[in-house]
Design a binder for these strands. Structure first.
Lengths: 357, 357, 357
DNA sequence: CCCGTTCTAGAATATTCGCTC
DNA sequence: TGAGCGAATATTCTAGAACGG
């Protein structure tokens, strides 16, 4: 029914950055740029000089360099905005509030730095031209053009005015270049939502009431009940965390193993990735498979070309050989050092067995 | 404060439409068209794709611009205080809810009777052209153009759809020519029944407990606030855990896929799996291995045995073997078993299940 | 928008389209235009006002009439059984829900891409012209022309609106070119008992837990004490979550790097990335779990079913991708887009440095 | 019983208004 | 005095519930 479309353009263009495509903190800025700023898209991005890569590991550097040297179209795909449901769903309930992302985006936008921009240290932002901001910028992102409404939202999300006589606001987790921190910012809740849901108004009605629980003395009103609920919840959370920790430990290990494994076959140059296609193609519906076949007409096995496989991979044996071969160290070392070294996971693993049940 | 004032000007110009001075019913259709019809848009797109519209409120802005460019007498008419008494007090807390007055006004407007008008008996109203209504009329009065949002408001105020297959709504106190009845209509409260749960009970809690504790909590003294803060915190934690679970699942799958991919090019048999297997799943490996062999003696893919083809599968003597299995499978299996098999992750998704099941 | 008047009779006559023989994607553009484009309408109005359409479903009637007047060979093509496998089993109980298949089909149809089409990555779809969609397309496939009903169905099947101000929906198993995944989408159940409100899971998990305070806190000690305990516990949980998030971020990064590394040795240019990108997906843990448990119940290795793995390849369409995950999606570069793009992890990283110190 | 359609409600965020410290 | 907040309304997206096929 309604075309609500209208405004999407702007939104779309930035929503992917602010919503979901930021990069993990550890990623070098150069790579990060590839990921998050569409303006700098991989296409135009000149290969960053090595010096820009801050990572500690030579291997990591190599990888980054590799990434940077990828063909544009590959980079495009690799760094295309996340379309994953959970990423996209970063709208409701999952990710940072839209307000935060929009605001962060506005502040980041270089084109409007004369109107709104980061403070000196990147830990606050300044609305330099409130009138223009309200008139031109606000309605682009929000359904109003009231500066005061914007400020109200800021307060709702815990921002504070940091400099008198200046529209400069700050929030601990609102920082330049770190949209991922926005998730730490939580909207202030209205009232006691937690317990029953059904009880909001009463508390209001009896502010004076210190005692006695809610007016009606509901059966469940006792604090102990709430505490119990909270406690149970905490228990569950704790278990969840343990589980997550365990799972994560496994994941790490897997990756480490994978790396170790890979390092044995470093010389994979001969691989024909068309083989890759098979796997994919096969999984895809009929038509798709055909496409695959078209591209890889020669060999087919289960929709996959054996010829290619054989031709290339007769090599399996070779690789194997390589396996024990060299090259392994570098990689493993690089990665292991980081992953294995991390303590926390182990710390939380109260019961690993529980994890894999 | 500073120039929040500066904005006032704009605000006023904007708010007058939405608040009170929207297009009065008496305005000739031709003028109304100037204001609301899409044709006035600068975009040549007859029906501009939303994506083409640069800013969300561009239409509103455009309307304002249009209004400002109108001849004085027209503007005078348009912006003169609404003749409708109930319109004059379209302010919060003073009279009936703005929504009711706006809606009543819209329905009364004779100029738009082809779009929205009273029912036969004046005790209901009919949206005869939902598309035009949403596109042209709604944004003039409200900050949106979604018919569904309008309907939601109607329901909130107790309106009911009275005729199937027709957008006809009725409310006992919503009648033609009787705006004064609108005051009887009450917005539905959030907390439905108010059966009293425990909410205000917190007041019971010892005020002394100031712990303040939770990170986020504001320096609010009462324990109730603490409970609220804790509850909020727990909610956030729960969400975090869900997120982590999801992410972890993705990570696992990725690694599995990567392994599967790799296994196509490598004979993993000869790998020293002690490196890979360190620690985890080895314990389970034993039995599973047998299952593997039993169930999948010949590995077939699209009817062809990969095992034979690749000549890999032959040995499954140990866990390692299990892991190494066929070209692709082996490793994956090993990994899959662990990652995929772990339940906990799913277990924790309190809300996610709700979402996607 | 939609005149929703009743023409049930007509409905039946065109139901054949709605069930299976709707415009297949392969239909030549010219023919497709005949069916759906407004040009076929007798009204010369380039943008026909809905009110001009004599009867509510007149368009559907028109479509039928048009179809019937087509040359035989065209009709043959149009009404020949849909080539899409999922279309053939568009019957209750046989395959995915009819709604899913119809919707998938609609989105796939190239002829209507201006109205409804896939999102950028083929993991979401966008209704670009809601009005036209509801008026022209919906009645062809369904027994109504209400956009809201369509949305309701989407939600029932777990779709989410992914971009504000845009009618873009996504479901993890609703992907371009992969109709076979539709089987993974389950209609939401009616919510059986649901006594407790927000805290369902816990009661289940901890039936015995009557008590209250879990682990640490004493049940009835003063509320303040409990609050303190809970607060501490929450603090710890929060830290744990932060740690987990950081770790997971590292893990993701590692995988990305690994992928980049791999690409260094591979000629990825020839890859059809669309294929690779399409499928990956399972971003959410739950589904992964479900897939594992539901789809691959039989064989287990380390808790994973090997059977699925073995049988896998021939049926990529099924559990394969999920369960075994193998090679199909592996390199799907989609990878990055997912991981890197996901917000949540970063969101929780209060201090990543803390993690890896 | 499942699925589809309709109508209404829940829940979270967003916007406005007014008050208070 | 104005920065921040409570509270009401508004907007969005999703879910509940009734009913028919």
């Amino acid at each position: 029914m309604n075309d609500q479309d209208g405004l999407t353009t702007n939104q779309r263009s930035y929503s992917r950055h602010s919503d979901c495509c930021h990069v993990s903190p550890e990623i070098p800025r150069s790579v990060a740029n590839l990921l998050i700023s569409p303006e700098i898209k991989p296409f135009n991005n000149p290969k960053p000089s090595p010096s820009l890569i801050p990572s500690r590991l030579s291997l990591a550097q190599l990888i980054n360099a590799t990434l940077n040297s990828l063909p544009c179209f590959v980079s495009t795909i690799l760094f295309s905005p996340c379309k994953f449901p959970h990423c996209l769903m970063a709208k409701r309930g999952v990710g940072p509030a839209p307000f935060l992302m929009k605001t962060h985006h506005m502040v980041e936008a270089a084109a409007t730095d004369d109107v709104i921009s980061w403070g000196d240290n990147g830990r606050s932002f300044i609305v330099r031209k409130p009138v223009e901001f309200a008139r031109d910028l606000l309605p682009v992102h929000f359904k109003h053009n009231n500066f005061s409404s914007f400020v109200r939202q800021l307060n709702t999300y815990g921002f504070r005015k940091v400099v008198p006589d200046k529209w400069e606001f700050a929030n601990e987790h609102f920082r330049k270049g770190e949209p991922h921190l926005l998730g730490n910012i939580r909207r202030r809740k209205i009232a006691p939502p937690s317990n029953g849901k059904a009880n909001s108004n009463q508390s209001v009605l009896l502010p004076s009431t210190t005692t006695t629980s809610s007016t009606t003395s509901s059966p469940l009103s006792s604090p102990s009940h709430e505490l119990v609920a909270l406690t149970n919840e905490n228990e569950q959370l704790k278990k969840d965390n343990e589980t997550l920790s365990s799972e994560l430990a496994v994941a790490k290990k897997r990756c480490v193993e994978l790396l170790g494994f890979l390092s044995k076959f470093v010389d994979v140059k001969e691989l024909d990735f068309r083989i890759l296609m098979e796997g994919d193609g096969s999984s895809v519906a009929q038509e798709v498979k055909e496409e695959v076949e078209e591209e890889c007409p020669d060999f087919k096995l289960f929709g996959v070309r054996l010829k290619g496989v054989c031709g290339k991979k007769r090599v399996l044996s070779e690789d194997t050989d390589t396996c024990s071969g060299v090259a392994e160290r570098p990689m493993k070392i690089g990665f292991n050092s980081q992953w294995m070294g991390s303590v926390p996971v182990a710390r939380m693993q109260h019961s690993s067995g529980k994890v894999c049940h």
